[in-house]
């Protein structure tokens, strides 16, 4: 059952791209891959003030993830709390997961050729901490939302 999602309070987001760097440093990634992304639409005048729409995107941790069944080595795993992660020991870097994903979320780590993607920093979550992007968000615009069954 999907338990978490990341919400961006776009009123507080200043598109500083901090989250992208917090994430990749925490995952010790080299130049190249990013596991999350901040994008802003071109400026548009609204009510005399220019506005932009800022979007945060990362893995959706789908309820029924297409990347999991295609993995030939069962390296792509869905946890009970819905987090979809890659077992780095098992991954062979075939990138079938990237092709199966509608958003091509998994990316290849040039250091070891293996696939890498957002896992909500599950090691941190399990230790009672927040994912890196949220914990260090410059303006506290990113929030971790725990989903409940109503």
């Amino acid at each position: 059952m999907k338990k978490y999602m990341i919400h961006l309070n776009s009123k507080r987001c200043i598109a500083c791209h901090g989250c992208e760097v917090h994430c990749k440093v925490n995952k010790n990634l080299p130049v190249g891959p990013f596991l999350c992304d901040i994008s802003s639409t071109p400026l548009k005048m609204i009510g005399g003030v220019p506005r932009t729409e800022i979007t945060f995107s990362t893995c959706r941790h789908c309820d029924d993830p297409l990347c999991v069944p295609v993995c030939p080595t069962n390296a792509m795993i869905q946890r009970a709390d819905g987090i979809v992660y890659i077992d780095q020991e098992k991954c062979i870097g075939c990138m079938a997961c990237q092709k199966a994903c509608p958003w091509s979320i998994p990316v290849q780590n040039p250091d070891d050729g293996k696939a890498v993607k957002c896992d909500f920093c599950m090691d941190r979550l399990d230790a009672g901490l927040k994912p890196a992007c949220i914990a260090k968000c410059t303006t506290h615009a990113l929030q971790l939302v725990a989903l409940e069954v109503v």
Partner: peptide
């Protein structure tokens, strides 16, 4: 292994440059 804004003053908040200190 980790750099964050002082939790007592910034609630952990840090900008991209701050984290890039490691680089």
């Amino acid at each position: 292994t980790w750099i964050e804004g002082n939790p007592h003053l910034l609630g952990g908040a840090l900008c991209a440059k701050g984290t890039a200190g490691i680089a």
